[in-house]
Amino acid sequence: MAPLRTALLQGPAGVPATVADSLRALDEAAAQAAAQGARLLATSELFLTGYALGVRVAELAEPADGPSAARVDAIAARHGIAIAYGFPERVTADGDAVFNAVRLVGADGAELVVYRKAHLFGDYERTAFTPGDRPLAQATVDGVRVGLLICYDVEFPEAVRAHALAGTELLLVPTALMRPYEFVPQVLVPARAYENGMHVAYANRCGPEGEFDFAGLSCLAGPDGTVRARAGAGPELLVASVDPEAVRAARAETPYLADRRPELYRSLT
């Protein structure tokens, strides 16, 4: 199977003026990524609206099939590239709940899957969002099994291990990691990739936004724990290859999944 060229859009730096500005930035990034051979583009957490929204979260939240989703679908189809993007999702059937979500659409513009952040970080998120209760969200992009988590989710080893056991080969993690937690992309993300034998694509925001200062340092870590691409502190578009064969080789070389003894871990749940 051919490697999947994957792009990570780090940014934006500061809150975008409008959702329309974010969609224009996404269109430009999709064009640039596709020109470099990428077939998948991942953005940061809450990319469409900005992260530091305060009480505006409910105002800016949209359904997963809302007007902004239609615009993203058109961008994906126009450039022939799958897109995973963060946004605040309103679900009226769930008591008008608002979720911190990521939506993955295919290169034809068709929705593949939506994931809602399960582990909410800090008082702001716990006040603004309802936690998701679906542990696994997966889809296939060009033959590669892609899974979704959001930011703080990846810091829970159980969440990533569940993906590994379910066959995820590439884990996309839209992120809004602020300083001083730079050790997460520097140490923890490569470790998660290694201990689960998978590629992990961690797409962060960057720069100051409201009370937060986002760390950047987006990366794509391989299943052997090596970082294939790393961003700095500012806006950046990373492009690197995800090889499914490397997943199989890593899991054979370091068989953590095969050597597990789950009967010993029952006390964890």
Rank of each mutant, 00 (worst) to 15 (best):
G122R: 07
D96A: 15
F129H: 05
V15H: 14
I81S: 02
G167R: 05
Y124S: 09
R261F: 11
P262V: 12
Y256L: 14
G95H: 11
E195C: 12
F183V: 12
P67T: 12
V187G: 00
G14D: 00
P16Q: 07
A250R: 08
A203H: 08
E45M: 04
A42W: 08
D243P: 00
G14N: 08
Y124I: 03
A84L: 13
P67H: 12
T269G: 15
E111F: 07
G50P: 00
R192T: 09
G234M: 02
A250E: 05
A69N: 01
P185A: 09
I150L: 11
V141M: 03
V146M: 07
T130V: 15
D213S: 10
T140M: 07
L170A: 06
A229Q: 04
L217S: 02
R90L: 12
A38S: 11
A107Y: 03
L170V: 05
G86Q: 12
V242Q: 03
E182M: 09
F214N: 02
Y152W: 13
R192V: 04
F183L: 14
T130S: 06
P208C: 03
Y194G: 00
G66M: 10
A101K: 10
E111P: 12
A34R: 14
A203F: 05
A76G: 02
I83C: 03
T140Q: 14
V239W: 10
L188V: 14
V154Y: 05
A13N: 13
L4P: 03
L170W: 10
A7E: 07
V200R: 10
L237K: 04
G143E: 02
S218F: 07
R205N: 01
V173T: 09
H119R: 15
R71M: 10
N196Y: 11
F156D: 14
A249R: 15
P157F: 03
E62A: 10
A38I: 06
A229K: 09
N204I: 02
L53C: 05
V154K: 04
L268N: 06
V102R: 09
L171S: 00
N196R: 10
D259K: 15
G225D: 01
E89V: 06
L9C: 06
L238M: 07
G14Q: 07
A107Q: 06
S267D: 14
G11C: 10
Q10R: 08
E236I: 01
L238P: 04
A64E: 14
R71G: 08
D94Y: 13
E245N: 11
A107H: 13
L41A: 09
R116V: 10
T92H: 12
G95R: 06
A2Q: 14
L171H: 01
G197P: 01
